[in-house]
Nucleic acid binder design. Structure first.
Length: 638
RNA sequence: GCCGCCGUAGCUCAGUCGGUAGAGCGGCUGAUUUGUAAUCAGCAGGUCGGGAGUUCAAUCCUCUCCGGCGGCUCCA
């Protein structure tokens, strides 16, 4: 071994080291920063993630990866998936592992195996903990494709991956104790790194390709330590406490009955939320040249045949038969808007013609997809259809993008954009689609926002820009949408007379801003944890007289605030003040005003503002001014 | 729709290894008149999601239907 070759390794921030060729990445990193090395779980070698045990055989750049790095986290999640596979195969030997990638916030591993029971998971958890304690190394081996084929002879999924690997090159496998998995790697050094592994659940999935054999997916998260897992589980439990379904019940906003699955029953307090959203949107409509219409909920089948819904959306529609004639419950407002535009001759002077409609829509969503308010069968959109000429498309959409920005900022939501393009089932011509997609893309680029492109996800009549917001558990939901449609106006034979005297077909921009009241509120309730901004709060002020002797004086304050249009109520005095304060706090009421001898003598109110423990003294006039300002400005916090 | 789990009082949940059920909160009544997150006492609420089967007996076991939850797929 004398006279061994040296290779030059460049480390982050510049230092270079000459080390023996074949030195392990982990050893070089440890020599470089011994105190931080225990956090390193893998390495980047010339930009490619490798095991710490990877030999460095040529000159190159080396950098450490820790759990805090995106790539490092993915390696740990992926290694956790391996540990799940090891545990599951140990528990159920004929299980066939398929693949187990990291995801945005964890990992999953899919298996061809009988449905898993909670007892299976208990067995797996115990076996995983044993493996963690044993610190079993992830040992990489490179073997020929032939050897791999015989090793995985009983697993068609692995055989397919082997077949897809380049010929003539070895494939890598990793041994973890007695378990061997085909895998490109890299992995954490040993299972001791997976002390924070946790199975979140299992579900059946139908693989995209393959012969329709359902697979069982085990989902989980991995952390380098138990403490980090506990912190994650605590955050998750807090997120679950914000679940809009629980808040809806506790605050009596809405509920569901078995007899109307997917159709929320809105209670008086929930209706306040809807009315405030409507008011908010209508203010914008009034300021932006919209006209509001109302069109039928039921249309004869022929209308939907014209619109294309009958061919393209029928499986999601409710249909009724009356006097032998088929009617469809509208799943969208577009057909009605088309009829309104076509109800008489139109001039270019009427464009852009912006028709808004807040009508109940019915969509038959598959039973398994329903989910509280976020996925329902009866919904109301803040919908509008804007009829424009070709040169009005871009300015109109620019205004919409700006309105979306403003609206979601008001609600302090994080939103993201998605550009969805031509689906497999589509109307019209490819060239027109391409042009429409290019227009939307250009406008998004121009507004300098990040967006994701989702090929094939467009509506059947046109491409769209969708807005997504996330619920408390991080699940994304589509809300606002801007859809560019060259198809429906033509199908409805809509025309307007241009300044050139010729007849032209208008283009339609379908758009919602908040999406549907239902889904928007579902997500927003979780976002604000039921602590609604004062302008939305079902009850804005509760006035608490200290004793019955103060009730009359308190009523005066209630009357004063109510006269100013505020939602205010007087509490009884049957319960202790402390109890009533607590109740108001639990009801998430933004302002609690206490009136006793002191306040009545001085003409003040003691106000407890939601989110603060101490009360603040206001004169009555100050309190009213404060409230009306917060409400009028639609401030997020009281 | 698919897979798994779940369904007990208005809400949150306990319980019965098969012998028709209990708590807390909420509600009602009474006493207390209260100074910023729970005053005390009493009372009323349930054919244990629906139906069928097994059994002397089913809320509990089996089947089925309905609904919910987590995923898959789909979507505002």
């Amino acid at each position: 071994m004398a006279g061994e070759e040296l290779v030059e390794i460049s480390l982050p921030d510049g230092p270079r080291r000459k080390v023996a060729a074949g030195s392990r990445a982990g050893d070089v990193l440890r020599a470089w920063r011994p105190e931080e090395a225990p956090r390193y779980l893998a390495a980047l070698w010339d930009g490619k993630a490798v095991d710490l045990s990877a030999p460095l055989t040529h000159d190159g750049r080396l950098a450490p990866l820790a759990f805090g790095d995106r790539a490092g986290r993915e390696i740990l999640e992926h290694s956790s998936a391996h540990l799940v596979a090891k545990a599951l195969v140990a528990a159920i030997p004929d299980a066939k592992p398929t693949h187990g990638p990291p995801t945005e916030d964890g990992f999953f591993y899919d298996f061809e195996v009988r449905p898993l029971t909670p007892a299976d998971l208990d067995v797996m958890r115990a076996s995983m903990q044993l493996a963690v304690a044993a610190k079993e190394p992830f040992r990489r081996r490179e073997i020929s494709k032939e050897d791999a084929r015989s090793l995985f002879a009983s697993n068609p999924y692995k055989l397919r991956y082997i077949a897809e690997a380049p010929d003539g090159e070895p494939v890598s496998v990793y041994d973890t104790g007695s378990f061997t998995d085909l895998c490109r790697g890299p992995h954490v050094p040993d299972t001791g790194w997976l002390a924070g592994i946790h199975i979140l659940g299992t579900s059946a999935i139908v693989p995209e390709e393959g012969g329709g054999v359902p697979l069982q997916r085990v989902r989980g998260v991995g952390f380098p330590s138990r403490a980090e897992l506990d912190a994650y589980l605590k955050l998750r439990a807090e997120a679950e406490a914000r679940d809009h379904r629980g808040i809806g019940t506790r605050q009596e906003l809405f509920y569901f009955v078995d007899e109307a699955p997917g159709c929320p029953i809105w209670l008086p307090r929930g209706m306040v939320l809807i009315h405030e959203l409507e008011r908010y949107v209508r203010e914008h409509l009034a300021a932006s040249g919209y006209l509001e219409v109302r069109t039928p909920l039921l249309f004869a089948r022929s209308v939907f045949e014209t619109s294309g819904h009958w061919d393209h959306y029928r499986e999601n529609m409710y249909v009724s038969e009356v006097e032998g004639r088929e009617f469809g419950w509208k799943p969208m407002n577009c057909p009605g808007a088309m009829l309104v535009f076509g109800s008489r001759a139109r001039s270019y002077r009427e464009l852009p013609m912006r028709l808004a409609e807040f009508a109940p829509l019915h969509r038959f969503e598959a039973s398994g997809t329903l989910s509280g308010l976020t996925r329902v069968r009866e919904m109301v959109q803040d919908d509008a259809h804007i009829f424009v000429s070709e040169d009005q498309v871009e300015p109109e959409i620019r205004v919409l993008l700006e309105w979306i920005r403003q609206a979601f900022t008001t609600f302090r939501l994080d939103w993201s954009y998605e550009l969805s393009t031509r689906p497999a089932k589509f109307l019209g011509e490819v060239a027109q689609w391409d042009r429409a997609e290019a227009t939307l893309q250009k406008l998004l680029d121009e507004s300098k926002v990040d967006y994701k492109v989702s090929p094939g996800e467009g509506a059947f009549y046109g491409p769209k820009i969708d807005i997504h917001i996330r619920d408390s558990l991080g699940r994304p939901w589509q809300t606002g949408t801007i859809q560019l449609d060259y198809q429906l106006p033509a199908r409805f034979h809509l025309q307007y007379q241009g300044s050139d005297g010729q007849l032209h077909t208008p283009i339609v921009v379908h758009r919602t801003i908040l999406g549907t009241w239902e889904r928007f509120l579902g997500v927003f309730i979780e976002h604000c944890a039921g602590r609604f901004p004062p302008w939305m709060a079902p009850l804005q002020v509760r006035v608490l007289p200290v004793t019955a002797a103060h009730a009359t004086g308190a009523q005066g304050v209630v009357d004063e605030l109510a006269a100013a249009g505020l939602r205010v109520e007087l509490s009884g005095t049957e319960e202790s003040l402390a109890k009533r304060v607590r109740s108001a706090e639990l009801d998430r009421i933004p302002y609690v005003a206490v009136l006793g001898d002191r306040e009545l003598a001085e003409g003040n109110v003691s106000v407890r503002i939601r989110g603060t423990k101490e009360s603040r003294s206001f004169s009555r006039a100050e309190f009213l001014a404060h409230l009306t300002e917060r409400v009028r400005s639609r401030a997020f916090d009281p």
